[in-house]
Design a protein around this nucleic acid. Structure first.
Lengths: 232, 232
DNA sequence: AGTTGTGAAAGGGTTCACAGCT
DNA sequence: AGCTGTGAACCCTTTCACAACT
């Protein structure tokens, strides 16, 4: 995975500031664990404590954070709330973002009623399906629109991310349609390798693939090789 | 991500055969795309063709495959069916595997009726929930068992992988219970950093985290930096 | 004494480029 | 001519280890 050149908040770092996407992924988990600590009333945490709780090395945690600024104090470690705020700001989840959901099958409806999204700063603002029977009906408080209304509805939402939970047929055209609407990130549940237009980021969620990985490990890795800290 | 020492099928390669887990993950997608090609009647494929279809470089594809044997012919490239068989054998999905599903909320029920698992060689052989109201009832053809029956039911299944779709409370104890039952792989949908007993592999599926990654990219990456081939 | 942030080193993964083959 | 499989080079990521600090 190539690192990505980011647009830093402080212009003096503009040139050649590169962040690994792995670092970004870990930021999510850091924040989630920090929320737990905060809920438990913890105010300050040392890198080795937080690192243990998320399953990384202290050095990696400190390195990851150092890309975004210096948050720690030598005496007390990291202020939990301040660090949550800082990570949220970097991820862009410090304000609620509208996302669009396409496909209201079993999976789509489950995602729609998945509270975790709202908790983490994402609001499913509109839902779409091709099935005319579903359109007009209300699902988890949202009226379902027909795919034909996509352009019209989405343009008013300022959404940049779409969740794809449709069947395989026609997804490629759908992706280009979304790109034209200003969507530049897709969370893809369709088990198919999408062709991504320039400027579009696609994150695949392939659950079967994870099962296959586990199957491989169960089959090939001797018990004593399996380390407790194996992380993704 | 550390590479993993595997138990090679050919003993002459025993010492120091190491496979990157990234390679294993890609194997899944190779196979999926190969199935498509096979369905379209394609018999042979060159590395550059297959690589383009899955979104990796030809060199990487060849390198990945080379860890498991030599499958290609200089003249005709790779035989599609033979390669599917070889990858399936390596992943361990050449025979159907029983898996266990724990938690029958919205998500659990969706996973239960998700055909993709069966298509890819995984059979959900038993489902469990704590809710006494659900137990005894039939969901997608499977009787729901109570968590108390876990030991009794699972021991007869020869399952090595469990899918966790429960609430957060009590998951850690659940993981150790599963470990004692011979489960050594967990597909975890619970948004919590699990502590993994020795010998246990845990794959987290954190959908919100992927949204956060997309949010970061949308916010920080200049349009012209977003490459069409950005893969995970 | 014990922590953070970070140069430098080590380790791991990807790509290059070509020998060997058809 | 054009492919595969692979040593070697390159690049990216993680870890080490320590100066600066409280």
């Amino acid at each position: 995975m190539k690192p990505v050149k980011i647009r830093p908040r402080r212009p003096e770092l503009w040139d050649e500031q590169r962040i690994s996407l792995r670092t970004v992924e870990r930021l999510s988990t850091y924040r989630r664990v920090l929320e737990d600590l905060n809920g438990a009333g913890v105010e300050h945490v040392y890198s080795h404590q937080l690192a243990k709780a998320v399953g990384v090395t202290p050095a990696q945690l400190r390195r990851d954070l150092s890309h975004f600024g210096t948050f720690g104090s030598t005496a007390r470690g990291y202020n939990v709330i301040a660090l949550i705020r800082a990570i949220s700001a970097d991820l862009g989840t410090d304000r609620v973002q509208n996302v669009v959901l396409i496909g209201l099958g079993n999976l789509g409806r489950t995602l729609l009623s998945y509270n975790n999204f709202e908790d983490r700063g994402f609001h499913i603002a509109a839902v779409f399906d091709i099935d005319a029977d579903k359109c007009g009906k209300i699902f988890a408080g949202r009226r379902c629109y027909h795919m034909d209304e996509l352009e019209q509805v989405v343009s008013g939402l300022e959404a940049t991310v779409a969740i794809l939970a449709t069947r395989r047929t026609g997804v490629d055209q759908l992706v280009t349609r979304l790109a034209r609407l200003g969507i530049n990130g897709i969370l893809n549940f369709v088990p198919k390798a999408l062709v991504s237009p320039p400027g579009m980021f696609i994150e695949d969620v392939d659950i079967s693939s994870k099962l296959e990985k586990l199957s491989f490990l169960a089959k090939n890795v001797p018990r004593d090789e399996a380390l407790p800290d194996l992380q993704e």
